[in-house]
């Protein structure tokens, strides 16, 4: 397996069970947990959301809360040294940009494989990550 060992692996997380299940296969590609980075992408708040209207919940606070939440969840799952990153914006664009920033050499992403109207209109995040990624992508099905 050593020729497959990666230095930096990125796992996008959307809080769904399938996305957490992607962590285990991703871990097989690295020697140490610290080479794993999890990313969650938040959508920006609608200007009429009461929290945005009164500016009681800024993007920085939202990021901190998600980091704390993910840290706790990962702790329960037995991962202590995984890196966590939270971004705000369009999911696929943020994932790709961040992969470039940390010079990721693999992205492991689960595919929800949307059906129906949303698939025709936009395709899935996984599809777009595969198309524009700077590095190899492993899509879990």
């Amino acid at each position: 397996m050593s020729w497959l060992t990666k230095k930096s692996v990125l796992v996008p997380i959307d809080f769904s069970e399938t996305s957490y299940e992607a962590i285990a296969p991703a871990k097989d590609f690295v020697e140490d947990e610290s080479a794993l980075t999890l990313i969650h992408v938040l959508t920006s708040l609608h200007p009429a959301d009461p929290a945005a209207m009164w500016n009681t919940l800024g993007d920085e606070q939202r990021k901190e809360k998600v980091k704390a939440f993910l840290g706790e969840k990962l702790g329960e799952m037995g991962y202590k040294n995984v890196q966590i990153e939270v971004k705000v914006g369009d999911p696929s664009a943020q994932i790709i940009d961040f992969a470039k920033d940390i010079a990721a050499d693999l992205i492991v992403i689960p595919c929800h494989c949307n059906k129906g109207i949303s698939r025709y209109l936009l395709g899935s995040v996984a599809e777009r990550v595969v198309r524009f990624s700077p590095c190899p992508v492993l899509v879990l099905k």
Binding site: T43, H46, P47, A48, D49, P91, N114, I117, S118, L121, L122, V125
Partner: peptide, 23 residues
């Protein structure tokens, strides 16, 4: 209009998911 676009966006997201709200 801004507030109602928020209500409508939540309803839309409930039906089609967050990713298509721009439509």
């Amino acid at each position: 209009m801004i507030t109602w676009s928020y209500y409508g966006q939540l309803a839309w997201a409930y039906l089609f998911g967050d990713k298509t709200v721009n439509i």
